[in-house]
Design a protein around this nucleic acid. Structure first.
Ligand SMILES: [Mn+2]
Ligand SMILES: [Mn+2]
Ligand SMILES: [Mn+2]
Ligand SMILES: [Mn+2]
Lengths: 218, 218
DNA sequence: TTAAATTTTTAGATTTGTCTAAACTTTTAA
DNA sequence: TTAAAAGTTTAGACAAATCTAAAAATTTAA
């Protein structure tokens, strides 16, 4: 089975939303896809007929195994291309998303396999998100939210939740990236901000919102 | 200006045909695009309105400067990606065309520039075709058709005209590729076939049709 | 428990790229 | 030089992905 670029984008969006919300609604999906709910309803019928999801009018929808498999393949390509763009072409992590959004639809499986090998079969993309292997298997790390880490502990940044350009730009400014080692000096009760230190550089303050979006390995 | 994948494919097809035929007809273009002439007429009107070509009903059409520039950019991306697939991912030269047909539509100019640099700014693709630089400039080689080369001369293969899988497969079998040095032993008047030799390997016979499709530097 | 609010679906259009069949223009050749 | 052949365009239709407006179903809350 092959799917259009649009279908693949819907499948991937449903996959992502299913991992954040326990029930994905038509409206939620329409917001994610920047379309109208009516458009989503049409697409749901189409994807149902292609056995990508189970759908019952007014009752909701959920990806089938086939749907999940397809989503994982698109996610795999997206993250492999992001890795390529950052590690081979020298792009910054905040520049690659829209390019990967196009590259993820290149169809050749052989190309994906060879790209994977060329990159050294990476397990994580530049944002710390796991790259599914060719069977759809994902490495799951035991991570903790930086906002919840005990004071005085040292941790290693492993992923970023909010991946907006603004957030990544801010982390760039702080010189925080995947793999950065952080020591938590103090947490301020007033606004939940934290004083942290990277190596020997001077201590700095990050807001609670930033801390909530950074995940670490302890 | 940005163009759809379909529009880009038409623009590129017109560009290629203009370099082989002194007048491109609606029917010829429809054959190249595997569509009906009526479909081409519709697209011509659309591309005319986008200033990609000059068009006069029943009288023909020709790319504008803007059309040529756009075509060269698509050709550039196509050939850079082919180079990448062969020289970085290890594909054979007869495997890359359809993948490049998709990759050539990835829009980011910054990506194209960085890919070009990553590949070492190659001037020719795996089939010996010139890769336009970022200004659309092409290196033109002084080439001669193998079928026309004087007997006893030694030449270097520089490009292949017919790039069908069948042709490339045949050349693979003969171990003839871009850069291969060939000595012409004899040309047979009966069928125009030629006896050639590569390095110290035993002499072999290639048909006139093969020779007509191989171009060399003398 | 039922009426109001919210969500979802249906109905009917629109745009893009395609088709077939028919009409129109140009070219060819008798 | 003109009639037939060939090439091109027009007219009308369709599938995909989208929209708006209205109808229907579900959820919420008085
Ligand atoms: Mn995408
Ligand atoms: Mn990512
Ligand atoms: Mn293409
Ligand atoms: Mn090529």
């Amino acid at each position: 089975m092959t799917y259009t670029t649009t279908e693949e984008n819907y499948i991937k969006a449903i996959y992502h939303l299913e991992h954040v919300h326990d029930k994905v609604s038509t409206t939620l999906l329409s917001e994610e896809m920047n379309t109208r709910p009516a458009t989503v309803t049409d697409m749901l019928k189409k994807l149902e007929s292609k056995k990508i999801l189970h759908y019952r009018k007014y009752k909701g929808f959920i990806l089938t195994d086939q749907g999940n498999k397809t989503a994982l393949n698109v996610v795999r390509k997206h993250r492999l291309w992001e890795f390529f763009l950052v590690n081979k072409l020298g792009f910054e992590w905040d520049e690659v998303h829209s390019m990967a959004e196009e590259l993820e639809h290149i169809s050749s499986n052989e190309l994906t396999t060879r790209l994977d090998n060329f990159l050294g079969n990476p397990a994580f993309d530049p944002h710390g998100d796991p790259i599914p292997d060719n069977k759809g298997k994902i490495k799951i790390l035991q991570q903790e939210c930086l906002a919840a880490v005990t004071v005085k502990k040292s941790v290693t940044v492993s992923s970023v939740k909010n991946q907006s350009t603004e957030m990544l730009e801010l982390l760039n400014h702080f010189k925080i990236g995947i793999g950065t080692k952080i020591k938590i000096n103090k947490r301020f009760g007033f606004d939940g901000s934290m004083e942290i230190r990277i190596d020997k550089s001077p201590a700095m303050i990050i807001s609670k919102l930033v801390a909530l979006n950074v995940f670490c390995i302890i």
